[in-house]
Design a protein around this nucleic acid. Structure first.
Lengths: 339, 339
DNA sequence: CAATATTATCGTAACGTTTCGCTTGACAGC
DNA sequence: GCTGTCAAGCGAAACGTTACGATAATATTG
């Protein structure tokens, strides 16, 4: 009984009494085939439980119907949500997804790209790592690539990102609207475009409110929980500490919360805090955490759609790449309050 | 400049003045080739920036060096951690990962399996959905499949899972050790083996402590946050409510926490709570949440290792499949206290 | 009814590798 | 110098598809 069902188009053709071309025609509906024959072919196919070999097809057609997705760290809850958006859209369009994790390491990212190209993926969705050199590698091939979330040093690429400048502004304006004037920010890693842009949005909002940004209220650097703890203590230990803190990602926010806990400060009475990215558990903290949410599913879905479009309709070399901006959404809970 | 670097083995062979067989031999180190020629071939390869075509190779060799991974919901934080373990191990062994999300839907799961088989993956790692019929589909092929996290109705498959019976027991014994006697459990979905097994472990521990399990303390059914809220209220509204609650997954736990919040009950003074799965933010809640952690990275890594072994060394039909159990780990924080 | 247009189907040559049997040339033994 | 051995390298045939030109069968026209 353990026969391996490994039939080829030839077997189907023989059983149906037609040529392989006809079987192929039936499968791909590429040319019209008479109803009686079509019937026979379909019957033969299901009798043998025949599945076309995607590998052979790819070799012949030059298209793999697969795309690559590279993210720097899939355990960062942001990416699975994006990936799900990509996956669902890809699946609906008949594409498979090759997933790669670069561990925020340039060399690994490059290896993944090489492997994906070697597998002849039809396109790539890339959340590049810090100091990525991916653009150089991509320039040598002729495969469409969409950058998501993060932009490479040269921003001249197709991209789908949250409008982080607007997001930073939105966050700051929320706090300003609540009467805060002394606002601190854990700005994250300036080599990462989202952090860079959020800071720019923050600056813009403060400028428009004619408020200065004190140097000591701005802490940039790393992005882990411990970094948040340290920076939180630094801000809260100042002679005149800020009345509100903006944390540029969720790990920094957790760090701030820990510092707050350790100093027995009460949120939102003594301090308002606000983070970027919004996850299920944010609303289950007490108090619930106010956050600027990214529409992760949309980023995923739209980046696939853009990629798909590029695959079907390759751009000429002189068309400028598209930048798609996804709006961010303020979700007000109880960690921010009137000053 | 926009030349597409699309060279084949023939181009390399021509440039190096050898036959394609020799190029192939150099690449695969399959047969020995003289140093001078090897040198010439390597030079030609790098001169043309040649990359072997994985598709053509697969067609010829019958091996794709790719595996499929299917999970029911990649936004459930458990799976990304597992996937990362798989990804890293796979990458190290030269395999690529095709990721699929079944949305907990049997039909989608089946479609994904079909697509993976059609792509001739060398193996599959599968966290199957409720009432999965995957086993039937797999039986017809001859491709190794490892079930992870969840077992299908017929448990006669290769699997890598947390030892959930032990985990349930561990959780219950921790509470019993703290002096709790009235322990409630949100047992989750009995059609899912982890939940089923955790309940069994809980039962075992209670039995060994010679304590009864009251019917009204046991709530099984769904697994979402809202289900947790409702069940939490039901337990806490009892004339004699439990002094401790076990939640069989993290969403149910969040639900319980919400119910607790709404009833102004204090953890751990009035109630101890304990969940399964442990995530970054668990320790940042106040109080920090005690949990039985699964070693997600290990599950991923070991499932790939087992799969790899099966790929290289296909089992004969009469060898019984292996079940690998990964231990769980109790992480004590402040949501559980002495009664 | 011959000549032509229209289908429906088929045979065959790729796609870029790997594999395997065969040739070639060098060299040792007699 | 002749044969026999042995490496090293080569040519050609696959792997399972698709696509294209050719062909056979049928329908349409003057």
């Amino acid at each position: 009984m353990a026969e391996r069902a490994k039939y080829t188009m030839r077997d189907v053709a023989r059983l149906a009494g037609v040529s392989t071309s006809t079987v192929s025609a039936v499968i791909n509906e590429s040319v019209v085939v008479s109803p009686k024959r079509k019937e026979r072919v379909l019957a033969a196919m299901s009798a043998l439980d025949y599945q076309p070999d995607a590998i052979a097809r790819s070799l012949k057609t030059g298209r793999s119907n697969a795309i690559g997705v590279i993210v720097p760290d899939i355990t960062n809850a942001f990416y699975p949500e994006v990936i799900r958006g990509v996956e669902v859209a890809a699946q609906a369009a008949g594409y498979s997804v090759l997933l790669c994790d670069s561990s925020e390491d340039r060399a690994i990212e490059e290896r993944h790209l090489t492997a994906l190209f070697s597998r002849r993926v039809d396109g790539v969705i890339l959340a590049c790592c810090v100091n990525s050199r991916a653009t150089e590698q991509i320039a040598r091939r002729n495969i469409p690539v969409i950058f998501i979330d993060r932009l490479p040093p040269s921003r001249a690429v197709y991209s789908v990102c949250t409008d982080n400048v607007a997001a930073g502004q939105l966050a700051a304006e929320h706090l300003l609207g609540l009467g805060h004037k002394r606002i601190g920010m854990l700005a994250g890693h300036m080599g990462l475009s989202p952090h860079h842009d959020r800071l720019e949005g923050f600056r813009k909002a403060m400028q428009e409110a004619h408020l200065p940004i004190l140097d000591e209220y701005l802490i940039a650097g790393n992005v882990q929980v411990e970094d948040g703890v340290e920076a939180g203590h630094r801000l809260l230990g100042l002679p005149t500490p800020p009345t509100a803190i903006l944390a540029s990602n969720n790990k920094l926010l957790l760090g701030v919360l820990q510092a707050v806990e350790e100093r027995n400060i009460s949120i939102p009475k003594d301090l308002s805090v606000l983070g970027f990215d919004d996850y299920l558990w944010n609303m289950h903290f007490s108090p619930g955490l106010t956050a600027v949410a990214q529409l992760t599913g949309d980023i995923g879905r739209k980046s696939f759609e853009l990629l798909h479009q590029l695959i079907q309709n390759p751009p000429t070399d002189d068309t400028a790449p598209t930048h798609m901006l996804i709006p961010a959404e303020l979700r007000i809970r109880n960690s921010t309050a009137r000053r």
